[in-house]
Design a protein around this nucleic acid. Structure first.
Lengths: 193, 193
DNA sequence: TATTGTTATACTCTATAACTATA
DNA sequence: TATAGTTATAGAGTATAACAATA
């Protein structure tokens, strides 16, 4: 298959000869890492979500329980550890509390604070996730045990605290600027091969 | 591995003795693969989104352009290739078209169909993403070149067509059922560590 | 005034259901 | 009736801004 030699596809204005298109797809192996990450993240997130749905959890809410498994936390702490805003956490906690996975109560020392603690139910969910071979199978469907181990290692590395957090280092934008004048507007027949 | 068993890790936000909690954090290396995937997917997605923001793209919209790079498509085809609903694609296309990355026009043969084609601008964005060393650096910040290559290989494998698509094989739920009675309701003082 | 958390609002991604236009 | 796509509605996750309660 011709990797990224898609020059024959219909250009902007003219949608093509016969129909939609030849359906030429660049194989993932030829994708830049960026696109790979994009696709993999989506795939993982969605399958993982589909799986977590059984517990009314999501890829976003599960980490909250994971954090709480280590002990009670103030909302602000959870937000910080997860790298999201306090408002976001606030809403997620509502859902998790409603699901019975955690409980909140005001701190006696400082009534402004809410002490968030995981419930036995929350722990149970984590346990199930923990034991579950199903989780591994989710990935193992396409990876060998060796590869899964490899992937694990890489993921762990990526998640290391010294890794760039939610605030990416932002390798400043190239010459493109969608905000002020598009790269090569739909009209401009710029270099595009 | 016992999630809440390692009581030593970095005290997260140490709120104090009598406060929220011990702040015991289980290190990622001890997480089950599921949790790892969860965290990694979020991390990748968010950093990647932050990066793509420069082009008004997201981890979800970029794949659309990637598909279109292979040739014009009907909306239904894009939805299918991406594993999302046609309605979702419909809305994403609106945004991408507004950004000037693609154009739609009715099919002469069948007026119900819309032929979607990438514009030079869209190609330019993909190209930039393609060339950009920045993308690699996003990951390379925590991984060595060797590891990046390894990760790439694993991601490619995970994305292979013969891999389970959007519809996960659903390794049937364990004994838990959030829908009908929680694992160990907040009330039930079940085994909990 | 500063801190902790919530509500209000908005935007994206996602889904289902209902609708329009075309066949 | 079937098909292609859109609109309506909903919910999660996210963010910013404004607010309430407490200190």
């Amino acid at each position: 298959m011709t990797p990224h030699d898609e020059g024959e596809a219909g250009e902007a204005g003219e949608a093509g000869p016969g129909r939609a298109g030849p359906g030429v797809s660049v194989p993932p192996s030829a994708w830049p890492t960026g696109r790979l990450l994009s696709a993999a993240a989506r795939r993982v997130e969605r399958e993982w979500d589909a799986y977590l749905e059984r517990w009314s959890l999501t890829h976003a809410s599960l980490p909250v329980l994971a954090v709480l498994a280590g002990g009670g936390r103030f909302q602000r702490e959870i937000a910080s550890e997860l790298g999201v805003t306090e408002q976001t956490i606030s809403r997620m906690l509502v859902g998790l509390e409603r699901s019975g996975y955690l409980q909140r109560q005001r701190n006696d020392t400082d009534r402004r604070q809410h002490v968030v603690a995981i419930t036995p139910g929350g722990r149970a969910a984590l346990e199930a996730l923990n034991d579950s071979v199903a989780v591994e199978r989710l990935v193992a469907a396409t990876l060998t045990p060796d590869q899964v181990a490899q992937l694990r290692g890489l993921l762990v590395r990526m998640l290391r605290p010294d890794a760039p957090g939610p605030r990416a280092p932002g390798p400043r934008a190239p010459e493109l600027r969608a905000s002020e004048g598009l790269p090569n507007g739909p009209g401009s027949q710029a270099p595009e091969g």
